[in-house]
Computed example of a mutant assay.
Amino acid sequence: MTSDTRRDPYLSALGLTDWQYRAGGPLDTKPAPETDSRPAPPDAGEAAPDGMNWDELEAYLARRDHRGANRPVFGVGARDAQVLIVGEAPGANEDAQGVPFVGRAGKLLDRMLFAIDCSRATNVYITNICKFRPPDNRDPTPDEVAADWPILERQIDLMAPRLVVAVGRVAAQTLLDCQTPLGKLRGRLHRYPRRDLDVLVTYHPAFLLRSPQQKSKAWVDLKMIARHIRNPGR
Rank of each mutant, 00 (worst) to 15 (best):
D4T: 15
R6P: 04
R6V: 13
R6M: 12
R7P: 03
P9C: 04
P9M: 08
L11E: 14
L11G: 04
G15K: 00
G15H: 09
T17Y: 13
D18G: 11
G25R: 06
G25Y: 09
P26L: 04
P26A: 09
A32W: 01
P33D: 09
E34I: 11
S37Y: 13
P42E: 05
D43M: 07
A44G: 06
G45E: 09
G45N: 05
G45H: 08
A48L: 12
P49H: 05
P49K: 05
M52P: 01
W54H: 03
W54R: 07
D55T: 12
L57P: 00
E58F: 06
E58Y: 03
A59R: 15
A59Y: 07
Y60S: 06
L61T: 05
A62N: 13
R63E: 12
D65E: 08
D65F: 07
R71E: 03
V73C: 10
G75L: 05
V76D: 02
A78R: 04
R79V: 08
A81Q: 02
A81I: 08
Q82F: 07
Q82T: 11
V83S: 00
V83L: 07
A89I: 04
A89R: 01
G91C: 07
G91S: 14
G91P: 00
N93A: 14
E94G: 01
E94R: 00
D95F: 11
V99D: 06
V102P: 00
G103L: 02
G103S: 13
R104D: 12
L109N: 00
D110M: 08
R111S: 14
R111M: 15
M112N: 04
L113E: 05
L113F: 13
D117V: 07
D117L: 10
C118P: 00
S119E: 06
S119I: 07
S119N: 09
R120Q: 15
R120S: 11
N123C: 03
Y125R: 06
I126C: 15
I126K: 04
I126H: 05
C130D: 03
K131T: 04
K131H: 11
R133F: 10
R133L: 12
P134R: 12
P135S: 14
D136M: 11
N137K: 12
D139Y: 07
P140K: 02
P140W: 01
P142G: 03
D148W: 04
P150W: 04
P150V: 10
L152N: 01
E153F: 07
Q155Y: 03
L158M: 09
R162I: 09
A166L: 07
V167K: 07
G168W: 01
G168A: 06
R169E: 05
A172R: 00
L176I: 06
L176A: 00
T180V: 15
P181A: 11
P181F: 03
P181D: 11
K184W: 09
K184Q: 10
L189N: 05
H190Y: 10
Y192S: 02
P193Q: 07
P193W: 12
L197M: 13
D198M: 09
V199T: 08
L200H: 09
V201G: 01
Y203K: 06
F207T: 05
L208A: 01
L209S: 03
R210E: 15
R210W: 04
Q213K: 13
K215G: 08
K217S: 14
K217I: 12
A218G: 05
W219M: 08
W219T: 07
K223G: 10
M224N: 02
M224L: 15
M224V: 02
I225Q: 00
A226D: 14
R230D: 15
P232H: 09
